[in-house]
């Protein structure tokens, strides 16, 4: 024990280390978010952050809850499985408050050919036309009703 008299510098060093460790633990407590490590090596609260982003597309069930007439017509035609917002664009705001945002006007001349213009890479079973040969510049909805496009069904004409 007599040797401890000369070991004062060791105790001082140990004290410096102890202070450093305590300081580290305090700073870690302050700067590491509480949810870090909740699920893994990341901030668990980030999941809620990402999940709370606003939506732009309402989803077709929201459209169909009000526009039952269009839904009924569409469900009998070949576009039954095409969601409303595929053509009408993102309308979550309209679904939340129908007066706040009216769906924009659709330019049929651009919209229809986006899917139906003939392209060699499209599946052969998909209905496609060379629009210039098919209609000669007459726009699509002169003959086809977009919600029920097949002409000989007699639905929606």
């Amino acid at each position: 024990m007599a040797n401890l008299k000369d070991a004062g510098h060791l105790f001082r060093m140990a004290a410096v280390f102890a202070v450093g460790i305590v300081l580290f633990l305090i700073l870690r407590q302050v700067f590491v978010p509480r949810s870090f490590g909740q699920y893994g090596f990341y901030r668990g609260a980030a999941l809620a952050d990402i999940a709370s982003r606003p939506m732009m597309f309402a989803g077709h069930p929201a459209c169909e809850s009000c526009h039952t007439d269009v839904h009924e017509m569409k469900s009998k035609g070949v576009h039954a499985r095409v969601a409303c917002e595929s053509c009408h664009g993102p309308l979550a705001k309209h679904a939340d408050d129908p007066t706040s945002l009216q769906p924009p006007h659709i330019d049929v001349a651009i919209l229809c050919v986006r899917c139906h213009e003939a392209n060699i890479a499209k599946p052969k079973t998909f209905p496609q036309v060379v629009s210039v040969d098919h209609s000669g510049g007459v726009i699509c909805d002169t003959c086809h009703k977009p919600h029920s496009p097949k002409i000989d069904t007699g639905v929606g004409q």
Binding site: I50, A51, R53, M55, F57, G59, R81, V82, A83, S86
Partner: peptide, 23 residues
């Protein structure tokens, strides 16, 4: 891509799956 995490956690599908006209 977040697989539209803000949509799928609310029971909706992703924006791309929603709008894909051919499924």
């Amino acid at each position: 891509c977040t697989l539209c995490y803000h949509r799928i956690t609310k029971g909706l599908t992703t924006a791309c799956c929603e709008t894909c006209p051919t499924g």
